[in-house]
Design a protein around this nucleic acid. Structure first.
Lengths: 227, 227
DNA sequence: ATTGATTTTAACGGATTTATTAAGTATTAT
DNA sequence: ATAATACTTAATAAATCCGTTAAAATCAAT
């Protein structure tokens, strides 16, 4: 398991590196956002730990750039109070966050949890698949499967379903989805989301009128239910 | 709330103890690292305040030893300049630190912050949750849980329950609730509150007619009771 | 016990949110 | 360039929630 640790406080980076290495992980380090993006383009990391405040390129920007080409799990490090709201909303594509100063045991626990969660993605024969309940997402063929049957998905449909399936149960507002899937600078109608969800249901649900997997949280948004 | 204060300056320890006791905390004291570790093995402290420089066993070593068996929040006391790097950088497991000489008000504030933090916690899935007694509010799934069972809540219901659970025992008048949840300028009937409370009870209480959690303070309002 | 005030409960209609459909625009492939 | 596919917008229908009302039940005090 290969982890990249990025922070401009070199001592902190060394501390984390040391701790994670004793856990048996292979750890690379970087000290600013640019280096982080560069490294993660070249290497296949299983996890990235990323500080929010950094020179050259902030953690949030780095996170967004990485998300352009990778779905690697990212843990954000933040000072208490920072831009907490935005991070908690996970609008930038981070998977988890920890507030500084933190307890190294907590960091280890979260690293373990995220790696376990995402390791489901890389299946048996190296085939990149994500399965929740009786629905499987096939990354290589870029489609979904349900009870063995293939379901063709368009680009947007695939992205939405992937986000949902990576965090089953978690409710995403329409604004959330626009930010995460369409991008933060997208200036479109929120109702667009409804239509895409509708088409996803048409393809995925046995009875689209009373969906079992893509569920509406009234007044809030949508979420994915495993089974 | 039980706090352990450890420092070899006995006067300082007594001062802190006195101040924290006036805040309503129960305070134990120790004067070296060994005693600190021994005491924290026997007692369930909610917080430990630990000096860096101490005879027998330094604060850092004590901190590490405690971390072997406990995740209790720890605040380190350090002289300015001390081994700051190690505390900030190498993460021996302290949750916060204060440099001596310090202002007692600041210490109190940090104690409060650390103790409060433990109530709104994230579980290993990174989910934000607020738990009081056997009822849990799950922010990401936007619902409540009771004894492991999920309870769907509407928008208003969620807001009311959140306010209640953030201040258990505190009584809110109907006017209070209208101001806090509906907004200061809302011009509606106060009976609306009754109806929402009723619906909440229907979902949350085993026997809604004799509620255990959302309690009526007759002639005053409603409050939340943990267990 | 009776009375008056307060709270609980149930039901209804309006308001808001979501689902559905269809038509228009953009993108991609041939 | 044309056709096919994907995406967005807009309009209408359906579902859900919310606030009001009024009657029933409960409580506190005389």
């Amino acid at each position: 398991m290969k982890i990249l640790v990025v922070d401009d406080e070199k001592l902190l980076v060394k501390g984390i590196k040391f701790n994670l290495e004793t856990e048996g992980y292979q750890v690379d380090t970087a000290y600013d956002g640019e280096e982080c993006v560069k490294l993660s383009k070249v290497n296949e990391y299983d996890l990235i730990i990323l500080d929010l405040m950094m020179p050259k390129l902030s953690g949030l920007d780095a996170c967004m750039q990485i998300r352009e080409f990778s779905t690697v799990p990212i843990i954000m490090l933040t000072a208490r109070g920072d831009d907490m709201d935005k991070i908690i909303g996970f609008e930038y594509g981070a998977d988890d966050y920890i507030t500084k100063p933190f307890n190294i045991l907590e960091l280890k626990a979260r690293v373990r949890a995220l790696l376990r969660r995402s390791s489901i993605a890389k299946d048996l024969d190296g085939a990149e698949k994500l399965t929740i309940g009786n629905i499987t997402l096939d990354y290589q063929r870029h489609l979904a499967e349900k009870n063995g049957k293939s379901i063709e998905l368009t680009g947007r449909e695939f992205d939405i379903l992937e986000l949902f399936m990576k965090n089953p149960g978690r409710v995403y507002s329409r604004e959330n989805l626009l930010n995460l899937i369409w991008g933060r600078d997208y200036q479109g109608d929120v109702r667009t989301v409804d239509v895409h969800v509708h088409r996803l249901r048409d393809k995925l649900e046995s009875d689209p009128a009373s969906p079992l997997h893509i569920i509406t949280k009234w007044g809030v948004g949508y979420y994915f239910k495993g089974e």
